[in-house]
Structure formats: C-alpha cells, structure tokens
Design a protein around this nucleic acid. Structure first.
Length: 807
RNA sequence: GCCCGGGUGGCGGAAUGGGCAGACGCGCUGGACUUAAAAUCCAGUGUCCCUCGUGACGUGUGGGUUCAAGUCCCACCCCGGGCACCA
C-alpha cells in the first residue's frame, strides 16, 4: 500500500482546521497552557530555518494538548515595519497591500507544515483594530507621565532617515542596515523605562529563562552604585556635579573632565581665548559617528582654560572636555583619577598630568591604573581603610557638608519610541499653538493611518505629506492644530500582543479581565536569542505598566523562555540576504511535511545552531516509511498465540522508550526523542521478523503512534485511523508508561580488571553484590588478567559493573 | 579586555548524582534482489598492528584526583556569542 503524501497531509490539515481541533476557550476544568512563539514579521516565504521553530512550537501544542492541558496557541503578525515600506518604495505597491499578500502566503505555508493554531485569535498590528490599542496604551503612558517628549541627542541612521533606540545601535551602526549612526539633537517621544529599571532587574531572578538571556538584560540595565558630588570651578565661576563609583579615590583626582555637550562648557569659555578652539572641538566630536568616536586609540580632549577645586583638600585641578565622557550617562562629568582608572590613566599619560595612587596595589602589581580594591593611601583621613569602609566614610563626609550623596545610575536609557517612517502606528497627539501637546481623546481612537503618495524617508515622517490628515482642530480648545506625524517604534506593537491574544477582537477594551486572568502569563515562550534585550525587555516593561494600572494580572509576561539556535548553511545563518536559504517546496513534494518536521527535530540540540545537510531528510523519510510498512503489515509476521518472552521484552522496550520520550520532550531534547523512536522501531522490526503476537504488536504500535503524533502528525493520524484505534489521534491522551513493564529483568554487567573491560555477562537486574563479585572472579575470560597478580580490591556496582583491582 | 557557551569518528550528534565512549542518523564500502537502475534489505565502517587479540591507543593541549575521568580540579590553546571609553 503506497503512502500518498500529498493527499494524506491535505486531508488531515483540512480536518484539524474544519473541526477547529486546536481552537480554544477558557475552561476552568482543565489546567491552561499558553504556548507562544514570538509572532513573525510576514516576510512571505518560509525557509528551513523558520520551519525549525514552527515545528518546536507545534510539537509542544500537540503534546500538551494530549496531556490534558487547555492549550492556547495563537498566531499573528508583526506587520508594521520597514520591509513593507521599502518594498513600497521600490515597487509602488501600497505597504498594506504588500503586507496582506505576504500574510496570505505565510498562512498557507504554515498550514502546509501541519502547524496548528487557534486562527480565530489571529491579529495583525497594521490593522486599526489592533493599533487603536497601541494608541490607547500610548495615551495611558502619557497620563501616567511615562510617555514624554524631549529634546536630546539621539541616534540617527542616515540610510533609513530615522532615529533609533540605543538598543538598535550595534557597534555604532544601525542594526538593520549596518550604516553608521550619527548624533542629532531632536525632539522625540520617549517611554520612561528607567523608572522600572530596578524592578526589571530584580524580577529577572524568578524567571525560568536561559541564564545568558538574564545576564544580557542585567548588563543592559547596567545598574551601578556610587556617589554624586559637586565640584566648584576655581575663582567662583560656577559648579558641576560628577558621578563616581569610587569616591574613596577622591584624593587622587588630578584633573576633571566634562562631556563636550555639557551645558556648563559654553558658559565657562565664553569670551576667553579658548572659545574658538573649544567650539571647533565640540562641533567635530558631535558630527562624528559613534563608530569614529570609539575607534581612535588616542583619547581626544582639550583643556578649557579653567581649573576646579577638589572639595576634600582644596587642591586645584585642570578642567578638560573629552569625548570619552558621555553626556548621556551619569552627570556628564567625571573626576579624573588616573591612579585607579585606566581611561583616566591613558588620558593623563598622553598629556603628562600628575598621577597619585590612592589605593595600595597588591605586591608585584605591574599594571598601569590599579582598579581593584585595597587599602587607601595618600588620602589623609581615609588612609588605612579598606575600599568599602573608605567609600562609606567619604560619602558620609560629603553628605554632612551637603556637597554629595549616595547615587544609583543605570546604563539603560529611556526608550525612544518615535520614528520618522510611514509604516507604523501614528502617535495620537495633537500640537496646538495655545494648548501645546494635547492627547487625542480616547473616544476618537483609532487615529487612522492616512494614505500618502510618497513613502520615501526625507528626515521627517511621510505622514507629514498627508496635509488633510495633519491639519486637525485642537481637541481641547478647537483652534487649528497639527497632528504628530511620527509613528511608533514597532517594538511598541510587540510589547503587549501576547495579552491581546487572550481577547483578540474586543472593540470595547484592550482585553477582557476574565480572559487575561485565565490565560496569562505565557507558560512557554519560544523565539530567537536576538531578542534577548530588545523585545523581551520592552515586553516586560509594558506588562509591568499594565499590571500597575490593573489591566494585566501578570507582572511578568513570560514564565518560561526558550531560545532556539539558528540554522546554518555554508557557514552562515540561513537568510534571504545571505542567499543561502533552502526552500522547503522540493522536500514537501518528495518527502512530505512529516519527514521535514522530523529532520528539523533530529538535526541537533534545539538550543544550538545546526548545519543543514541536504541528505538528512532522507533518513527521517526512510524511518517514516518503515513505520508505514509496519502498520500496513508488510514487515515480519503476526500470529494469535500465547504471550512469550519476546512479547514481554518488546513491551518493556516500548515502555522504556515512552519514559524517555516523555522526559526528553519536557527537557526540550527533541533530537533524542527522534532517535529514541528510531531505535524503538528497529527493535520492533527485529521482533516481527521473529514472529510477533497480534495483541502485543497492536499495543506496541498504538503507543508508537501516540508518541509520533506530535512529531509527525499526518502519518500518525492516518495510521491511527486506518488501524481503527478510534477517535482522532490529536485528542487522545498522552500515554503513561508502566514502571513494572518498563523494568528490565536482565542486564549486561561489565567486568573490569584495573578499569579495563575484560568481559561482559548477562545477569538478573536485581543481582546482589556478592553474586556479582563471584561472576567477576570466576569468569574464565577474566582469569587471563587476574593470573599472576594479587587481588587487592573489588569494587562492585551491581548490576552495572565490577572492577577488580590487581597488583 | 571582561562575562557566558562550546571543542567527541568522514559529517550531524549520543552518553555528565564519575562506571561499556561513539546511541540514532547521514555518508561511504561490500553483498542480496533486479536484464539494469531506483527503492528496499543484510553486513561493515574511530586510529594503529606482517602479532587481528573482547590487543594497544583514543573525547582540543599539558598536568592532577580516583579502583574508574568525555564527565571532577589546576593551567593553557582554539571556536562561537554577549558586553565594552557607562566613570
């Protein structure tokens, strides 16, 4: 009997969808399981790299369902963003039309893989139905003071003609197009994520996430503890504040540095001989890209003709500006302590500035700056104190005099959310000459995204071209106003979509309380490690904001996170831009979805990158072929007879396989799940060749199909039906192994002499130590190695191993 | 530079509360079936040896602990990722 791949797969895909087998509603009788994959950008064609992830998610959906969970597995589209806009610029097709076409294509490809979802919950963030709630969310943040507009130096991508969040700048280049990022002074919308920095940091602890993702978030938030204190400019010309984590080294300050953009700089140099050169320096530095600023080995910077006074001893120190001091971190000014800071050391030695050590380096220390802890020296009243005590002492001293205080700083900046692009969610604000910034009233949402003629970026949002749309009356006073024309970062869309899936089509509220209470938090979240800081940090932030406002029952959105590896081909990540994609179509035609799925699972540990090998699918296709022939009675022979040892043995093998498959799925070791089933079928074939018993085989095969169901659902469903086990496989209960049946009666025990294997014997699994030792000493193969020596010890680990130590 | 991962056959990978290294698969070699091929099935497949023995060696390198080390400890090399003038 031939297996008609195309017909069988289409039949079951049709049935799962028509019968809404994986559609779900709240059901308090069963435990819920929210299984979610990071929703994709609808890029159109799926390649083998994508299919790997979809296979993992689908496997879990089906497996948890069989285990009796009420599984929520939704799908939707991260459908705003640059690709559609770029395609529109290139082809003239409207981004909406382009996007919706891609969605249709992707849905059909997911269906072809046999991936199942509750499609009734489908959402797409480019639809007004969805982005209305982005806007609502924006207004809520604005009400709470968590969204604000401010002028500041921002990252600007020349290529994309838009601002970027810090997280989108990688090594001084745009993470998307890799072109250099420059600084621009612009008025932009921000979300006050820094207000949540401590909670975002602390709550990481309770999450069942990969350690490295947690570490990346920790580093990104970059909390540091130290102290702010004031420094007077000599001759009463003002003061500035510095931040340091090492206030104990204050006696080692031999200079101070302000960031070039520091507001005090202009005042200090106005009308002096230095004015000209300082202005030139500041201009040069701010025009340079981040990349250029970092790549110079020398520390650039110049003296500004002023001195400042060290508050602890009144010592004068020259004042510099240098671009290694960043306006965006701390106070934008530092004390220069070359003895204990390597950057200050470099700066000082390049200019011949004084260096004073204020911490005793360990004996034999050969480095330049000593940045470790130790005992204070050359520090008057701090001398002799170890670093932590010296810190406490000096902070107390500064506090008492009202010039300093303990301070905590973060590397994390507020989230810059406005973008000068077309294909994104409009920001629901109006600028009014008399009222200023006025929020669009909630009842006027959504602010519908207008059509325009020209999508090309020109430094301002293309929405500004839609004059009819831009010109609007002020919602407060009715005078003519202008809409905000920037759109939101698409990471806003993706920071709450998992909540919306609980109630995708609610037009009254962002989502219903009872529904999110039932489903949240996401039990298993699956996606790429590239989102470790971007999406995953923003989503945690927005969830916490919604929690604080009483909308989300969960303070953390994703209880458990799994980050899968990439698929590699020809030494590079499989991607359209690298031109190394393997398209699934030929494999569907030749081997079918099940064989592809199995190979995707088998290819290697899910956490690791895996190399695509063309011949690999053939192996899993052969395996499925054997499963089929076994089911069709084309292998070995069966008879109705009394149960014998072979029957008991194969049942034992099957139950042990079931035990391992269950625990390996739970541990996300999908590759060994497949190899376990392959080994099982090899055993079953050997069993049938020896003549099987009908009832035993039927039971073994039933368990095999149940285990195969989540992995290779089409062929498993078809066989389940043909062999008449009853019902639809997908809704059967996941079997539980029987320990008694799984127990092995005999095992092969290894006999060693001095740690080297010299013999193997089959023994009862419950053999006692004395008997095991007798086996070792009496084995005639062992005699050769025992002769002429003296047995000094016998180590017995029954029933696995006996090691005889001979001298 | 700092912080995480990771180095096992020709290839992807199994095996870590220390206990048979190389499961399972790919590839390759030989054989069966066939007029032939494909498919399928069977056997073999870490390295070494005129000694073919349940022989010696073997999990990046060098030491160590142990009856026993891929697994534990110390030092180092290489690869991948993250962070990186963050004061």
């Amino acid at each position: 009997m031939e297996y008609d791949v195309a017909a069988v797969e289409a039949k079951w895909q049709d049935l799962w969808e028509r019968e809404k087998v994986f559609y779900t509603t709240e059901d308090t009788q069963r435990p819920k399981y929210y299984n979610l994959q990071m929703y994709p950008y609808p890029s159109g064609d799926l390649h083998m790299g994508h299919l790997r992830n979809y296979t993992y998610v689908d496997l879990l959906t089906r497996y948890r369902r069989m285990q009796g969970y009420n599984v929520l597995s939704p799908m939707g589209w991260d459908s705003f963003g640059l690709p559609a806009e770029n395609a529109a610029i290139a082809t003239g097709i409207h981004p909406r039309e382009f996007t919706e076409r891609q969605i249709v294509r992707m849905k059909s490809q997911l269906r072809r893989l046999g991936a199942v979802y509750d499609w009734s919950r489908e959402l797409a963030c480019h639809t007004p139905e969805y982005y209305k709630w982005d806007q609502w969310l924006f207004l809520k943040l604005y009400e709470q003071g968590l969204a604000y507009k401010s002028r500041s130096a921002v990252n600007w991508c020349e290529q994309d003609q838009t601002v970027l969040a810090n997280e989108q700048v990688v090594n001084g280049a745009c993470e998307r197009c890799n072109s250099p990022v420059t600084r621009r002074d612009l008025s932009q919308w921000h979300f006050r994520i820094t207000e949540y920095a401590d909670r975002l940091l602390e709550d990481l602890e309770g999450l069942d996430w990969p350690e490295r993702v947690k570490t990346m978030q920790e580093n990104w938030i970059g909390r540091s503890e130290g102290c702010d204190f004031k420094i007077q400019v000599a001759d009463g010309e003002g003061e500035f504040e510095v931040y340091t984590t090492r206030p104990d080294t204050i006696y080692g300050m031999t200079f101070a540095v302000l960031a070039p953009e520091h507001p005090l700089v202009e005042k200090l140099v106005a009308g002096t001989d230095y004015e000209e050169s300082i202005r030139a320096y500041v201009e040069r530095v701010s025009a340079a890209s981040e990349l250029e600023r970092m790549s110079t080995g020398e520390k650039s910077g110049i003296f500004i003709g002023r001195h400042c006074v060290n508050p602890v001893n009144g010592k004068r120190a020259p004042l510099y500006i240098a671009d290694y001091v960043l306006m965006g971190y701390g106070t934008g000014a530092i004390m220069g302590v070359p003895g204990e800071d390597q950057r200050d050391w470099d700066f000082a030695t390049q200019r011949g500035l004084e260096i004073i050590r204020t911490v005793e380096p360990p004996a034999g220390f050969e480095g330049e700056a000593y940045t470790g802890e130790g005992v204070s020296i050359n520090s008057e009243f701090l001398d002799g104190l170890p670093t932590p005590a010296a810190k406490r002492r000096i902070i107390g001293w500064l506090e008492k005099r009202g010039i300093g205080r303990r301070a905590v700083k973060y590397r994390l900046h507020d989230w810059l959310v406005s973008r000068q692009r077309y294909w994104g969610c409009p920001i629901p604000m109006v600028n009014c000459d008399s009222c200023g910034l006025v929020p669009v009233p909630e009842e006027d949402l959504p602010v519908i995204h207008p059509d325009v003629e020209d999508y090309r970026p020109k430094g301002q949002s293309p929405l500004a071209l839609a004059t009819d749309w831009v010109e609007v009356d002020c919602p407060r006073c009715g005078a003519p106003g202008r809409r905000e024309t920037d759109t939101m970062d698409t990471f806003v869309d993706s920071s709450w979509y998992f909540l919306r899936y609980c109630d995708s089509h609610n037009s009254e509220r962002i989502f219903d309380d009872d529904k999110v209470n039932y489903w949240m938090a996401v039990d298993q979240y699956i996606g790429g490690v590239e989102h470790a800081v971007l999406h995953l940090l923003y989503a945690r932030f927005i969830t916490k904001v919604l929690y604080d406002m009483g909308y989300s029952p969960a303070e953390e959105p994703f209880t458990r996170l799994f980050t899968q590896g990439m698929l590699v081909k020809d030494g590079a990540k499989m991607s359209k831009s690298k031109g190394n994609v393997v398209t699934p179509e030929p494999y569907y035609e030749r081997y079918g979805a099940d064989a592809i799925r199995l190979y995707e699972l088998f290819i290697g540990p899910p956490t690791d990158d895996a190399v695509w090998i063309d011949g690999g699918v053939e192996g899993t296709a052969r395996f499925l072929d054997r499963v089929w022939r076994l089911g069709m009675g084309e292998v070995g022979s069966l008879a109705d007879r009394e149960e014998n040892r072979q029957d008991k043995a194969i049942l034992g093998v099957t139950h042990r396989a079931l035990r391992k498959v269950t625990s390996d799925i739970d541990r996300f070791h999908f590759n060994t799940v497949v190899s376990t089933l392959m080994a099982l079928i090899n055993e079953v074939i050997a069993y049938l060749r020896g003549g099987g018993q009908t009832a035993t085989f039927r039971e073994v095969y039933r368990l095999l199909l149940l285990m195969l169901g989540p992995l290779a659902p089409h062929v498993a469903h078809e066989l389940w039906e043909r062999l008449g086990y009853g019902g639809i496989l997908a809704t059967q209960e996941w079997p539980v192994w029987d320990e008694e049946t799984a127990r092995e009666e005999t095992v092969v025990m290894v006999l060693q002499v001095n740690g080297k294997v010299r013999d193997r014997v089959e023994v009862p699994a419950d053999i006692d130590e004395a008997t095991a030792e007798q086996h070792a000493l009496r084995s005639h193969r062992m005699q050769r190695w025992l002769e002429g020596g003296k047995v000094t010890r016998v180590i017995v680990r029954a029933p696995r191993i006996v090691n005889v130590v001979v001298k």
